[in-house]
Design a protein around this nucleic acid. Structure first.
Lengths: 243, 243
DNA sequence: GGACATCTTTGCTCTTCCGCAAAGAGTTCG
DNA sequence: CGAACTCTTTGCGGAAGAGCAAAGATGTCC
């Protein structure tokens, strides 16, 4: 369930085309793209729904499609031998799930799972490749997104190499706040379990739990099941430097 | 010293143009590029020499040029607050030093240092940007290189999150073997210090020294000052799985 | 060639954090 | 509504590896 295509491009009504165009316009993938190209790009997409925990693609699968999240969120994971799971990153609305820039003949080198019920615009990857051949700006955007992702991972790599867990976790929470923070009665909330936070920062759910309990008592965050609300983002960011 | 440009493009002799073309042809950056574009690209470059330990660019510098190594090697590092240094990667002949795809208005987010006396072809980054606008294949190559670098860092991130130091070090040595391995009387040798290996794998020079001493006694590697020769690459690769 | 600088080894101690266990809290579903 | 799941907390060892110190090895420069 929840995987059926909502509509084929040829059947788009004017209203649907508008709505979709607005979604596409917000994404960094399509920034600075001339209006004329918009229509063509948007109309080539299908809409797709994913249930919570549904896999979007598996490591090793051929890259069949390009998936642009329009609502919800996803995690990009890699599996070790003995069931260990590392989260390479998370994606929110407007972001592409899966390495953008991979060619149709390539294979995914990670697995994507929906963190929440999500909707996405989906292109056939060969068709998307063709679109990117025609749009210099689209290619530039792809390059730019890759540079940013590389930069973020480099930052995380530096942290995991040199910083202790408390620093890594607090910085990761700040990053998540900007990327996936949801406003829930005046508080920015991150909807991830202790274990997922551990898999993002290279530690264990126990250590995450202990740190969050501590910060909770200090009034910096408040913890709920599978969620963390941040009261004081500044204090969180500075937790690293002093301690 | 050793930083002067060897020659301006306008002064290239026919022999020099040929030699340079051959260098460029080997690089993944220029693979599949039509011969006609070659000449133009190659003739826009300057040649530059770097002494051992010379910095090629610093974190925070504006991206002024694109540097393609033709001989020697370099390390890409990031500096922490208190002098801690992490090596994000190393580069050998045919590889671009510094994140390819960055625009002239961007800034470097890492520092590059020559590991050995090196030569490179250097383009003004605005000029290179212009070249890449005209060559669709060049843009594709840039995307491809970024995907590969992202993938390698993802792999290292998974390892540093889930594997113990011995596994990380042995796998890193295998990767280095393929990338920078130099044949020295029948042995593949990696010319990096214990500390640099530690900075690559997120550990300390002490731990690296202890592991290499152990593997040395077991006949898998032989260690020299600022170098490691690998006798048995297979045993090295498998060190991870069993132990 | 000898003094100096740098890199490496090795022993020892100490901290951080992992890993297990068991109890507690919060959901879901019949 | 209560039983079954799943997620979280917390306590308690224990292990991996960090960090320091001091000696040894190797290269470099005058």
């Amino acid at each position: 369930m929840a995987t059926a295509c909502a509509s084929a491009s040829s059947l788009l009504g004017e209203g649907e085309a508008r709505r979709r165009e607005a979604l596409v316009r917000q994404s960094p993938l399509f920034s600075e793209i001339p209006a004329a190209e918009y229509r063509e790009i948007a109309s080539a997409a299908h809409e797709k729904h994913f249930a919570r925990r549904q896999t979007m693609f598996l490591e090793g699968d051929p890259v069949r499609r390009v998936v642009l999240l329009t609502s919800g969120s996803a995690k990009i994971v890699q599996l070790g031998q003995s069931g260990t799971e590392v989260i390479l990153g998370v994606r929110g609305p407007g972001e592409v799930v899966g390495t953008v820039g991979l060619r149709p003949q390539d294979r995914h080198c990670s697995t994507a799972l929906a963190l929440a019920p999500s909707t996405a615009l989906v292109w056939d990857s060969a068709a998307f490749e063709a679109l990117s051949q025609r749009s210099a700006q689209l290619r530039r955007n792809i390059t730019h997104i890759l540079c940013q992702q590389l930069h973020e991972l480099e930052e995380r790599y530096r942290e995991i190499s040199t910083e202790r867990v408390s620093v890594r976790l607090s910085h990761q929470l700040v990053r998540l706040l900007n990327q996936l923070g949801r406003r829930v009665n005046g508080q920015l909330e991150i909807r991830l379990s202790r274990e997922e936070l551990a898999q993002l920062t290279g530690t264990t759910l126990f250590t995450v739990s202990r740190l969050l309990s501590d910060w909770n008592q200090r009034g910096i965050v408040s913890t709920r099941r599978e969620a963390v609300s941040v009261h004081d983002p500044q204090a969180l960011a500075q937790l690293g430097e002093a301690e």
